[in-house]
């Protein structure tokens, strides 16, 4: 199947562009910027590290945090957004507070969150949660408010109950916006988790099982002076982010089959 994919023009272009990028980087590292590790050195570092459980533990730590924060943001954000979209009163009460808090970058919450939450792990989870939460809520509200009012009139005419309208009209009509919010939110979650790990995960107060993660891997490699590992950590995050966005997009297509149907 992968062989089949390689035969497509787009796939060939992707491979060529990645190779050219690696070659240029290699040349640059060898002749111009000598303190940048060349890709060959990064690859060598990867070969040594790939067998070590510590490396995979970093992946595991970051993925767990991303999934935890992201899932919490979905679980809280979707009902919250739907509630705000369905009631003018609730919208009037909660939206102003939401709009004041929303521009605060999640990373600005790091110190407060470390003080507020009892464990390091919870404070990272909280900051990660914030990263995705606002995007999801905004998308859910936008999607739910844009529903064609005639859908409700049709449903009411045909004798639908409130629950039926919610389950069969509001939810599916909002789903495409939820998917968009989730994909964007997932990207933000990765940005936030790595920064949070650098700031708090690698701190001296990190006792016991706390700390670790790909962000911490980068930071500790920097402190330890192994530049290949810094770059390796960066690439690992890129790949991790790509995998999660791709999975989410696949899931999105699966739950909204009618969107994809348009192009076929």
């Amino acid at each position: 199947m992968i062989i089949d994919k390689l035969r497509t023009r787009a796939a060939r272009r992707a491979v060529v562009s990645l190779l050219v990028f690696a070659v240029l980087w290699e040349l640059n590292a060898r002749f111009l910027s000598k303190n940048v590790p060349p890709p060959s050195a990064v690859l060598a570092a990867w070969v040594t590290v790939v067998g070590q459980p510590d490396y995979w533990h970093s992946w595991y730590m970051s993925f767990t945090r991303v999934l935890g924060g992201f899932s919490a943001a979905m679980l809280v954000g979707i009902p919250f957004g739907l509630l705000l979209a369905s009631s003018r009163t609730l919208f009037g009460v909660f939206f102003p507070v939401f709009e004041v808090l929303r521009p605060i970058p999640p990373l600005a919450w790091v110190p407060a969150s470390i003080i507020f939450w009892p464990t390091q792990e919870l404070s990272i989870a909280f900051v990660t949660f914030l990263g995705a939460f606002y995007t999801i809520v905004i998308n859910v509200i936008g999607g739910a408010q844009a529903i064609d009012p005639r859908y409700f009139e049709v449903a009411r005419s045909m004798g639908a109950t409130r629950w039926n309208v919610f389950r069969r009209i509001i939810l599916p009509a909002t789903l495409p916006s939820i998917v968009v919010g989730a994909v964007v939110g997932m990207g933000i979650t990765w940005e936030v988790v790595v920064a949070a790990e650098m700031i708090s995960g690698g701190g001296s107060q990190a006792g016991g099982t706390a700390g670790g993660g790909l962000g911490f891997l980068i930071w500790s490699s920097y402190v330890g002076g192994s530049y290949e590992l810094i770059v390796l950590g960066m690439i690992s995050i890129g790949i991790a982010g790509l995998i999660s966005s791709e999975l989410l997009r696949k899931l999105g297509v699966y739950v909204t089959p009618w969107i994809q149907a348009r192009s076929s």
Partner: peptide
Amino acid sequence: GPSHDRLVLFQETALFPWM
């Protein structure tokens, strides 16, 4: 009030796109 006794076909399509 609305009822399935009296149904309307609107000017533009109001089919549910997700069904």
